[in-house]
Simulated assay, not measured.
Amino acid sequence: MSTRYGEIVKAGLWDQNVVLTQMLALCPAMAVTTSGTNGLGMGLATTAVLVLSNMAVSSIRKLLSPQVRIPVFVVIIASLVTLVDMTMRAYLHDLHKVLGLFIALIVVNCAILGRAESFAARSAILPSAVDGLAMGLGFTGALTAIGLVREFLGAGTLFAQASSLLGPGFAFLELTLPGVGGALLVILPPGGFAVLGFMLAGKRLLENRRSDAPTPTVATDSPPVTA
């Protein structure tokens, strides 16, 4: 069982990463990742919806007929997104103002409905929760990485305004790097696509090198068998 959970986590973080492998949710990935803080906030909001929607779908999967499952999944996801949107508006109002419409657009994130249909509708609650968490963290990691690169090259900062957008507990993340930044193009939409392209190329390069690595052979002390 532990091996299965390990495979689920590995798939969500790397093998089936929402952005870097499946190429889904590129709209928020490009629009909100002008800073690492925005990417982290958007990723965590999406992760919450993924975990809760997977658990909800898994818990009622045996009660749904095939004809109505997709509309029911959409209603569940839309309800959870509304709850997340209202929670962020109440407790993370500054971040909510920055992310704006993209919080509501989590409803149409193909990755969330895709995981509900392909995994949660066929699995128990605990594996579904782990799948949602792994997929969400993989998505969060990709958005945060893109945002950090764009912020570093464009403004010379890392996690700017983290304390005001995410709360005082995130103040330790804020860094200012003198003499770095100034590449305004990286902050603009073309820069986002360029950063994503380099990250995709890097991921493919790592995977190719790993697949091309020689498989170690295990030596044995047994003498060869002769006819």
Rank of each mutant, 00 (worst) to 15 (best):
P189L: 08
I8A: 02
G156T: 08
D221W: 12
R210T: 15
L44A: 05
I77Q: 07
I70P: 00
S163I: 07
R122P: 02
V32I: 12
L105T: 08
A120T: 01
L188K: 11
Y91A: 14
G114R: 05
A183L: 13
R61W: 01
V195C: 04
T21C: 13
P66Y: 00
S79W: 03
L166D: 00
K62F: 12
P216A: 07
S2T: 15
V107A: 04
L177I: 12
Q67F: 10
L133H: 02
L101H: 13
L205W: 12
R210E: 15
A48T: 12
A25G: 08
G182P: 08
P190T: 04
G36Q: 00
T140E: 01
F119T: 05
T215N: 09
T37Q: 00
G114D: 07
V49I: 05
P66R: 03
D85V: 13
G179H: 10
S123C: 01
I70E: 05
T33N: 11
G114K: 06
T82H: 09
T176G: 06
G156K: 09
M42D: 05
V19S: 06
L126W: 11
L153A: 09
G43E: 02
A162H: 03
R209Y: 14
P189E: 10
D131M: 09
A116L: 03
V81D: 04
L50G: 09
L153M: 12
V180Q: 10
S128E: 00
A201V: 07
R4G: 07
F152W: 08
V18R: 08
L137Y: 05
G202H: 08
S211A: 15
F193W: 12
A104Y: 13
G181I: 07
R209P: 11
L166E: 00
